[in-house]
């Protein structure tokens, strides 16, 4: 019987939630593929993570002890390749996370496997596996297949499958896999600056500006408008990279999550997946963008096609 192999992601001794999402993705296609689901745990003490990953529907946990303290890309790539050689899975699922993109392409390239990244939907069409991803700022979708490939390696977009959560008894097998040379070494973590001037995660009403706000002066006007509206100012990443606002204001994958937000007013933000990761759950999203096809409108409840700077100027007159 063929297999779907999931490679678990963990950090600091804790399984990252995205792992349960890709287990769910595996469970969703197993039937179409007629495959078992195996979950590999790579690390210094894989056994410790067994309870967290004993999920209903998983057929086997593969515990692979490795001489690493935390994630190491060459080690994960070598073990991933060895597991493919040993188990010949039809499909390998890895999170499209920062660690995932650090080793998944290596497995694809050295093994000449089918490969696609940031996939958010999967289906079987007869014998073929069909993966869906998006392109050009989320404006189009692409369906891919992998003719002639025995094994297909995919990185899966976080947030696209509801996590598998029901516990189940899953047998665990320990596999000894030799790991080759490792040329990089984990030297510790730096926690994000807890301080900052505000906690955007706590705010109920966020006014968020993106690159489309145009320049620093307009960003400052938006800040003034936010104050008058009773909103907390937030932003997308390019605004931080340009030095217009501090990192503590950034919403998204590498910034903060708008945890308490109920109203999110987005000005000049395109709706990249890494930004949506921090805000697409918000109940009421109002998006202002010059481009009627911007992806942000796909998650918004109310849309305004307008020039952000002009709208800020008009709004300032209405919130004296």
């Amino acid at each position: 019987m063929s297999a779907v192999l999931v490679i678990a992601e963990h950090r600091g001794g804790v399984v990252r939630p995205v792992t349960r999402e890709i287990v769910a993705a595996a469970l969703a296609v197993r039937e179409g593929l007629g495959a078992r689901v195996e979950v590999a745990i790579i690390g210094a003490r894989p056994d410790v993570l067994v309870p967290a990953l004993s999920l209903e529907g998983v057929d086997e946990l593969l515990l692979v002890p490795a001489p690493i303290e935390e994630f190491q890309p060459e080690c994960y790539a070598a073990i991933g390749a060895a597991l493919i050689a040993a188990r010949r899975p039809r499909l390998v699922l890895i999170p499209h996370s920062v660690d995932g993109i650090s080793y998944a392409p290596a497995i694809g390239a050295t093994g000449s496997h089918g490969y696609a990244s940031d996939v958010f939907a999967l289906r079987c069409d007869g014998e073929d596996l069909v993966a869906t991803r998006s392109a050009y700022r989320e404006k189009v979708r692409v369906e891919l297949d992998f003719p002639g490939r025995e094994t297909v390696v995919l990185t899966v977009r976080p947030g696209s499958f509801p996590p598998a959560s029901r516990p189940g008894g899953v047998p665990a097998t320990t596999l000894e896999v030799p790991v080759g040379p490792m040329n990089s070494e984990h030297r510790g973590y730096i926690e994000p600056d807890a301080g900052g001037d505000v906690d955007v995660g706590a705010a109920e009403f966020l006014l968020a500006v993106g690159r489309g706000i145009g320049d620093r002066a307009t960003a400052e006007e938006a800040a003034m408008l936010a104050g008058r509206m009773g909103a907390t100012l937030a932003c997308s990443r390019p605004v931080v990279d340009a030095g217009w606002l501090p990192k503590s204001r950034q919403i998204g994958q590498s910034g903060r999550t708008a945890t308490n937000c109920r109203l999110y007013l987005a000005l000049g933000i395109s709706g990249a997946v890494q930004h949506l990761a921090g805000m697409k759950h918000v109940e009421t999203i109002i998006a202002v963008n010059r481009d009627p096809d911007a992806a942000i409108f796909g998650v918004a409840r109310v849309g305004v096609v307008a020039d952000a700077a002009e709208l800020v100027a008009e709004l300032r007159a209405l919130f004296p």
Partner: peptide, 30 residues
């Protein structure tokens, strides 16, 4: 490593749009 089967523009849930000139849009938004 992969073959494109097709590319397409996804059907998107459109939000309610606020139309008009900037001044009207701002008033409705406020």
């Amino acid at each position: 490593a992969a073959r494109v089967r097709r590319m397409y523009v996804p059907p998107r849930p459109r939000p309610r749009m606020i139309e008009g000139r900037a001044g009207e849009q701002a008033a409705a938004l406020a």
